[in-house]
Design a protein around this nucleic acid. Structure first.
Lengths: 343, 343
DNA sequence: ATGAAAGCGCTAACAT
DNA sequence: ATGTTAGCGCTTTCAT
């Protein structure tokens, strides 16, 4: 890769041209108090004339602060993670920090490579959505960091910002039961993913609290993808006994896939099948019917993670759980209302 | 922000511990040939034992290559740009490069700040979606760079990777006219955006070629947003004379908003109103009816931009235009077919 | 209020 | 095959 040819001016060029020492230039640039107004003006003028821009590498090397943050998400093209990223970026920008963004593709080995890159880049801190792996030990990550996402809870030694899954599940299941649904089928993520277990536990907890037998709940693996969700729904539809089918998907992508599958089977949502999602991605609002879902505060997760990173918790692994909100849009039938009753 | 406390081992620590010089360690790490097998083994062992990780700042400073690329998109939370980013990331990762990602928010001043950050970080190159501004002069950007997006064409002195808008428009309008639509209304982006002009010109060009009076086409500003698209559609609906209304939106977000507006008015798509989008974002596939759209190869734009950056064009501002594809999903009626004719 | 000097961790040029 | 030396551009003491 070709680099810019014309040598960039250094602090020495500025110093020489302004007839002062490097130190003085550095002082002016650092907005130090003890510089005469005349000198300051003079230096600033030369800085502008030469288009001087400090070399962040040299600064980082000497000062120990690089002004860079790292962010490792599973997939930046996934709308949920793109929102988290935006949140992190916004806060980083406000503090004059740059963000190195990586996609781990849910692959522990890829994640490991990215973490190594971040360490070598000497980023000031990192926001990471941890991928499951026995090997991974975030206590010796050797970087200030904050974990994000539902899998973060798995690493109690690290600070984290995540969603209050239990609260979200309660919100969703309350909504379902209030509308007369008794045994929602589950479309879950793959067993390899940390988040699956957490959601399942939350659902079981809710069931126990409400005197429901959790084993009565049908569950299918939807792989967190649209296609996987559609296939899972197809399987659920096959086993369906007469009557209304209610499905709770662990993410909106699968819920949307499920919705498609319902339509392709010639059934209607919400008349024949009710679908509840989890995430709150924008695409759910465009579906027809609109996807009723439990919204996670994606952008805020990003901003809060950076806040946490910047606030130096003094090595106390603070854990923040943000609350979910229910977005009702129309994919869940109200079985109590005669209006929405089947046929 | 607190930094890691335990000092990281340097190449000197490794050298001392292995009983060799820094240079030898550097040679081993650089996989140089002229090192004895015994020494190599010895050094590598110490490297592992000490968990040595080269300081990228120091390397960059000395070598002039930082191993970092810059990426400035309007909004990482916008699915189109998230895809572009993913493409760029994938190719960067394959070459062991990290990517600093910024969102300019379509604001020239924000963009300028980000570009300054990239310059100071001494990135090896940058992929930029340029935002309109008289001030901006990309010839003195002072970084190897590749412009992306429809606005890139505005800067002929810079290499760019974009979409063949003319081809896309032809694809879309051919599709519309073949199905009996004669004067599609346009929902465009705001006048402040470079892309608007380019699309308009492409549409006019098409019209001239086909003996159509371009001024006969109704046009509304949809601000590139969902809400803006919905409002634009509402305005179009008001002016609608009897018969089928056909709308061509400059991006999928506006098209989706338009679709919502149609539904809210109690009209049906595609029976009463046909909608054609432009982008190919995933959300269009979940809408009902599915959004028929002209797909831009978003991810490929990202990968190709990085390829271009890495291939060092020798300062020839190469311009790559990638072809679009039409995704037919159901939001456009076939007025020739009696099946889809109104009522 | 200003400057001189040291050194961050590494690579490249030049020894040997 | 290995070592020595000289910086890269900056910040940070420590002087004055």
């Amino acid at each position: 890769l070709a680099l810019g040819n014309k040598r960039k001016p250094t602090i020495i060029d500025v110093a020489r041209s302004a007839g002062v020492s490097k130190t003085t230039v550095a002082r002016v640039l650092a907005r130090a108090e003890n510089v005469s107004e005349a000198t300051r003006e003079q230096v600033l003028q030369v800085v502008r004339r030469l288009d001087y821009e400090p070399n962040a590498l040299a600064v980082g090397m000497r000062s120990g602060r690089t002004g860079m943050l790292g962010l490792v998400v599973p997939d930046i093209a996934n709308p949920f993670w793109a929102e988290v990223t935006r949140g992190a970026q916004d806060l980083a920008s406000a503090h004059d920090l740059s963000v190195l963004v990586f996609s781990s593709n849910w692959d522990p080995r890829v994640q490991e490579r990215h973490l190594t890159s971040l360490r070598q880049a000497r980023v000031d801190g990192a926001v990471i959505n941890p991928v499951a792996d026995e090997q991974t030990d975030f206590t010796r990550l050797d970087m200030p960091h904050v974990l994000v996402g539902s899998s973060a809870g798995r690493f109690p030694a690290s600070p984290s910002v995540g969603t209050d899954i239990e609260q979200g599940v309660r919100l969703g299941l309350d909504f379902l039961f209030e509308r007369g649904h008794t045994a929602p089928a589950l479309i879950l993520g793959p067993a390899s993913r940390l988040a699956r277990e957490r959601l399942l536990r939350a659902v079981w907890g809710y069931c126990r609290e409400h005197g429901i037998d959790p084993s009565a709940l049908n569950a299918e693996d939807g792989g967190y993808t649209v296609d996987g969700g559609a296939q899972a729904m197809t399987r659920l539809l096959k086993q369906r006994h007469e009557g209304h089918l209610c499905v709770f998907a662990a993410n909106d992508l699968m819920a949307l896939g499920a919705l498609t599958a319902v339509r392709e089977t010639g059934l209607r949502c919400p008349q024949d099948v009710s679908i509840l999602g989890f995430d709150g991605i924008a695409a759910g609002g465009f579906a027809w019917p609109g996807l009723t879902t439990i919204e996670k505060p994606a952008r805020e997760i990003g901003t809060r993670a950076v806040v946490q990173l910047l606030s130096d918790p003094g090595h106390i692994p603070a854990r923040t759980y943000l609350r979910c909100q229910l977005i009702e849009r129309g994919s869940v039938a109200d079985l109590n209302s005669s209006l929405n009753r089947r046929n």
